[in-house]
Design a binder for these strands. Structure first.
Lengths: 201, 201
DNA sequence: ACCTGAACACCGTTCAAGT
DNA sequence: ACCTGAACACCGTTCAAGT
């Protein structure tokens, strides 16, 4: 897909694309520098020409995953609540588009790497409700933590189901029969909390 | 602290205690089976007599971290909102008590391991508000995701600050000047959302 | 600029064997 | 029941050297 599979001499872009492929095909635990190198027909040490270390390579992967979010129209007339929900949904869908997407993005953000765009887009949607900058940023952060935690768990479950068959009654209390509904509920709580703080202002 | 430092022959309990020590002294990346073994003056393979693998050993560590939460009085007369906030605070404090505590608990819960007690205690507090069981469980899950995400980030920041000196303006948009206030804000949003859904019922 | 070859300092886990 | 000794199959990263 991102060419140059046999011809040697790769770009940073090639490396990132190959990493996304491995992530989606094999999952995060199998996305090793050595496997990535061998997918590119190159020695592991060659990767360090493109990235200083594995974490920065994963940060690039994370940025590409969230950058693929569908754009959300935010007409000034629409209720801000709908904009926030749409942003949350777009983020969830982007994370679900790659295997272990949520965990990659989560660990990257935890390390302070990755683009700030993700929080900012959420914060902008919140700010449509007229909240001040700090409130918007804090609400966006809370939303992001919920989304990443929820989707991480969702994706972990997917993997279990696909390989473990998961003996009956083997469910954790975090498991949800309807992940999409549980997701909407969680986002709804945070939006509701914002509404309430607004009406009390 | 958990005895038997030189006399060979350890119990599962000794192993878990030693793991907690290493976690708090060196952090999760340095909590390896080999280092744990050498702290107990034992060959790495000996650990597999006590735990089938590293993940189950970490699950035991996670359970001990959250089990140390301070008990929260829940008199039936007190407002349920205060009970939920108290449970969230108790959980945050327990996670902060050990280095990388949030990450250990988070990854354990993500794998479906660890005791269900953590979610259940949160759900019980929510249920004091008269919410049905599914709503309480979903709200507790949302709360838990927020708490784990927030505290994980908080602890990552602590480590950065302690070793990196962190050049000026090196802050990510997720960073907070006042983590405790940001935490209370996030919990407040979720509690507020519950209040609103209640008044609309 | 991009890569090779070789090495360093590690991992988690298994397994036969010992007491 | 609890442990040793040795091995297997890996890791991320560095570094001199090549083109």
């Amino acid at each position: 897909m991102a060419g140059n599979e046999t011809g040697r001499r790769h770009s940073r872009d090639d490396v990132a694309e190959a990493a996304l492929r491995i992530l989606d095909d094999l999952g995060l635990p199998d996305l090793t520098m050595r496997r990535l190198a061998s997918a590119l027909d190159v020695q592991p040490s060659a990767l360090y020409h493109h990235f200083p270390n594995k974490q920065s390579m994963l940060a690039e992967v994370a940025d590409r995953i969230v950058a693929a979010r569908r754009p959300v129209a935010q007409p000034d007339v629409a209720p801000w609540q709908a904009a926030v929900r749409a942003e949350a949904d777009a983020l969830r869908d982007a994370l679900l588009a790659y295997r272990d997407g949520a965990e990659v993005v989560s660990s990257t953000l935890a390390l302070g790497l990755g683009s700030p765009e993700t929080v900012e887009r959420l914060a902008r949607a919140v700010a449509l409700g007229g909240f001040d900058e700090e409130t918007s940023r804090r609400a966006a952060t809370a939303l992001l933590h919920f989304v990443l935690g929820h989707v991480s768990h969702e994706q972990q479950r997917l993997q279990y189901d696909s390989l473990g068959v998961l003996a009956d009654a083997e469910t954790s209390p975090l498991d949800e029969d309807d992940p999409a509904a549980a997701f909407a509920f969680g986002v709804g709580l945070l939006v509701g909390g914002l509404e309430l703080s607004r009406s009390r202002r």
